[in-house]
Amino acid sequence: MTAATAAWAARRTTSQALRALAAEGATGALSGERGIVYLCAGRVVHVESASAPDLGALLTRSGAVPPDGWWEAVDRGGTQHRVGHRLVDSGRLAAGALEVCHLGALFDAAYFVLAHDTRAHRFRPGAVHWLGAVRSVPVDTVVRESRRRRALLESIWPDPDIDVVPIARVPGAGAGDLPARRRRILDRVDGARTAADIAASLACRTYHTLVELRRLAADGLVAAAPRTTAPVPAEQQEYPVAWDDPDTALLRRLRDALEAL
């Protein structure tokens, strides 16, 4: 640990550590209980969490990029930290589409990293994500958005276990008429899948899946359940042939707002 990045360790929460690193203009990777935040010159450039599908999963499972195209970009651009550039330069993905999907994956993962905001574990100065630069976001924006999302979920149904444990249908509860996306999510609730599993099977973002799951819980249709069976293997999951992305307009507005900073 260098003197320039030592201040983060004294902070009690991950968000406080991120703000300390941002104030120093630090570059590197901050690891927490539920994921890793990558910084470049004090701004967030990537966030990873096992509780949210990563960018590759979103792009390939949605059909936006074929799997062989994604892995070709990883093989050719990964060691140079230019996977994103490779996707765009090869014509497989438009730059705007990459930015929108990247922002969605970043804020999705950040929600889980900051949801309980426990103490950060480790900072690796100079660490760079293999995807490469796509869009950087101020730390305060990431923290503020994560808190807004947590508050919204709690206002719908105040059970944080819904976020991370397997979800089960409530026996005998009638579904009635549901919006199409909520119905698709309910159809995948089987007592074994978590919200992240369901989001991955639908090639959509975990946070928006959580919103629908909490609404289903508020309606008495689903509840958090202890894990009694193994998760559905990836090769057995069903993936849509079209990109189900109803929140693209919101993310474009987020991107435009960031450009104005």
Results as ranks from 00 to 15, higher is better:
D68W: 14
G69P: 03
A73S: 04
D75A: 15
R76F: 03
R76N: 06
Q80H: 09
Q80D: 09
R82G: 10
R82N: 09
V83D: 09
L87E: 02
V88N: 11
V88L: 10
V88I: 12
V88T: 14
D89R: 15
S90C: 13
G91W: 03
R92G: 08
A94Y: 12
G96T: 14
A97C: 10
A97F: 15
L98N: 15
L98M: 15
L98G: 15
V100S: 13
C101R: 15
H102D: 08
H102S: 08
H102R: 11
L103I: 12
L103F: 10
A105Y: 13
A105V: 15
A105L: 12
D108Y: 11
D108C: 05
D108M: 08
A109P: 13
A110W: 05
A110H: 05
Y111V: 15
F112Q: 09
F112I: 09
F112C: 07
V113A: 06
V113C: 08
V113K: 07
L114Q: 07
H116F: 14
D117P: 03
R119V: 03
A120P: 13
R122Q: 08
P125T: 11
P125Q: 09
G126A: 07
G126Y: 07
V128E: 01
H129Q: 03
A133P: 04
A133Y: 06
S136V: 11
V137C: 10
V137Q: 06
P138Y: 01
D140E: 08
D140P: 14
T141R: 13
V143S: 03
E145N: 01
E145Q: 02
S146M: 04
S146T: 04
R148I: 00
L152F: 11
L152N: 07
E154N: 02
W157M: 01
D159P: 02
P160N: 01
D161N: 08
D163N: 00
V164C: 01
P166R: 10
A168G: 13
R169S: 04
R169F: 03
V170K: 00
G172L: 11
G172K: 12
G172P: 13
A173C: 11
G174M: 07
A175Y: 12
L178S: 09
A180F: 05
R181P: 02
R181Q: 10
R181W: 12
R183A: 03
